[in-house]
């Protein structure tokens, strides 16, 4: 374990003790918060996307008001930043980044992944997004506009990818199984064969 982690662990123990002693929190409250945070995962975003692919009314709601769409699927959004949804089309591919920190649509995708928080991702996304996407093997055709959304302030943004060809007639549950977190940030695109091993 690194020195900085040993030091950080000591700091956490000390701080937790002080906050509990001052009545600002309890170990049970911390445990409950961890548990409830862990329930947010990309499966929530995937369920929203799959429903949008199969339910035109829901799709319209999701694009107009992501927070209302999430709440319509019983995803808790109270007290959280508004959710904006970016629609991929045959003309436009969206990519989300936060160049200043790591703003991420946690309510619908869970904790931000390691790469999203990295300096390389944050630096490259707004300057060389097409080169950046090659890290995932993702090629956006030259005829398609790339729109990079730098999430700097009070919204959180997720991408509504295009429904893969060859999935006609599939139920929403099966469609949701095709989606990865990166599809909803724009670093990857879903396919009818589902997530491929790297």
């Amino acid at each position: 374990m690194s020195d900085s982690q040993v030091e950080s662990d000591r700091l956490l123990v000390a701080l937790r003790g002080l906050l509990v002693a001052k009545g600002l929190t309890t170990p049970a409250e911390i445990a409950e918060r961890i548990r409830s945070t862990d329930t947010a995962s990309p499966a929530r975003g995937a369920a929203m996307v799959a429903r949008a692919w199969t339910d035109p009314e829901f799709r319209a709601l999701m694009l107009a008001d992501g927070t209302a769409a999430a709440e319509a699927m019983a995803i808790p959004m109270r007290g959280l930043p508004p959710l904006g949804v970016l629609e991929n089309t045959p003309e436009v591919h969206n990519l989300v980044v936060c160049t200043l920190c790591s703003c991420y649509p946690r309510a619908v995708l869970g904790y931000p992944p390691f790469w999203f928080k990295s300096a390389a991702y944050r630096a490259r996304a707004v300057r060389d997004p097409r080169g950046l996407l090659e890290e995932w093997g993702t090629v956006v055709p030259p005829a398609v506009k790339l729109r990079v959304v730098d999430s700097t302030a009070d919204y959180r943004w997720m991408v509504l990818p295009m429904r893969p060809a060859g999935t006609e007639g599939w139920p929403a549950e099966q469609l949701a199984g095709l989606l990865r977190e990166g599809d909803m940030i724009g670093v990857t695109v879903p396919t009818a064969t589902g997530p491929q091993p790297a």
């Binding site: 956490l12 929190t25 911390i30 961890i34 904790y111 390691f114 790469w115 300096a119 630096a123 490259r124």
Partner: peptide, 23 residues
């Protein structure tokens, strides 16, 4: 950072990470 590769592998959060986030 423009020539730095992005580590696209998943990194599991530790108990430390989760607790700091919760606090």
């Amino acid at each position: 950072f423009l020539c730095e590769e992005v580590d696209t592998e998943p990194h599991a959060l530790t108990d430390f990470d989760r607790e700091v986030d919760a606090i």
